[in-house]
Simulated assay, not measured.
Amino acid sequence: MPEQTQEFGKFGARGIKGHEVVARRLDDLAGGIATPVTARRGLMARLRYLTRSEHARAAAREAGLTVTDRTLKAWLEGRRGPSRKNLERVDAAYRAVRRKNVARHLLGRLNARGGTRVELHPLNQSQVPRPHQRVLEFRTLNIRRWDRIVDAWAQGDDSALDAAWVDQIVDLGSQWGQYEYVSNVGFAA
């Protein structure tokens, strides 16, 4: 059984950890506000999302947006604007709250009809010298239970997401270690 990669990229291979690509794909499926937070429209949309109810405000505080209600009101009315650091906090809080809000719905879609087919695109070996290249191929895998993956993603827990992802790709058999780093992971819900 292969071990996890210790020195990825030593010979020039390029790729991304599979769980990071899965997190990006889940973020895409979750949708959200496309306008950047630096634009007035994007900021206002995020602030309205984070302040529309007391539950949303509590979730925003829990996610790291710790400004006073008076400051939030001034931002919403346009009397003041947030600093660059607070813009980053608003965006991070929005992503965290959005993940938690859509996780249950997304989980239902991914687990429906016996799971979701996942396509694993191997890492890029174009810069690896010929003697060190491995034979890698496009692989597919059906993940039937997404609970741990979606829960770790919704919590923003990178190490738990990595562990949950590795537990799934072990189903590839003895070649699973070759797909710890990939160029892309594709799935739809």
Rank of each mutant, 00 (worst) to 15 (best):
L29A: 12
S159A: 12
T66G: 03
A58M: 13
W146G: 10
R79S: 14
G114V: 09
L76H: 00
V21W: 00
T66K: 15
V182M: 14
R57Y: 02
A39V: 02
T140E: 15
F138C: 04
T51C: 10
R79N: 12
I143Q: 05
A59C: 02
D157L: 02
R84V: 11
V182Q: 10
R52P: 01
E20S: 11
H55G: 06
V102E: 13
H121Y: 11
F8E: 13
I149D: 07
D171E: 15
R40F: 05
L43T: 05
W165G: 08
R89D: 14
L141P: 08
L29Y: 03
T5Q: 09
L110M: 13
R145L: 02
T51W: 00
Q6H: 06
R104L: 07
E62A: 14
A96E: 10
A63G: 06
V118Y: 01
V97H: 01
A189Q: 04
L136D: 07
R57S: 11
L87F: 01
D167V: 00
V135R: 11
V118I: 13
T35F: 00
G78A: 03
L43F: 09
A58T: 15
T38F: 01
N111R: 11
F8C: 12
L65G: 10
R104V: 07
V67N: 08
Y94N: 10
K85W: 00
M44F: 03
E7W: 07
S83H: 02
Y94H: 12
W153H: 06
S183V: 00
E62Q: 15
F138N: 14
Y49P: 02
V67S: 11
A96H: 02
F187C: 12
T38I: 02
G115E: 03
E20A: 13
A163F: 00
D151F: 01
A188K: 14
R109N: 12
D157H: 13
D91R: 09
P122G: 09
D171L: 14
K100Y: 00
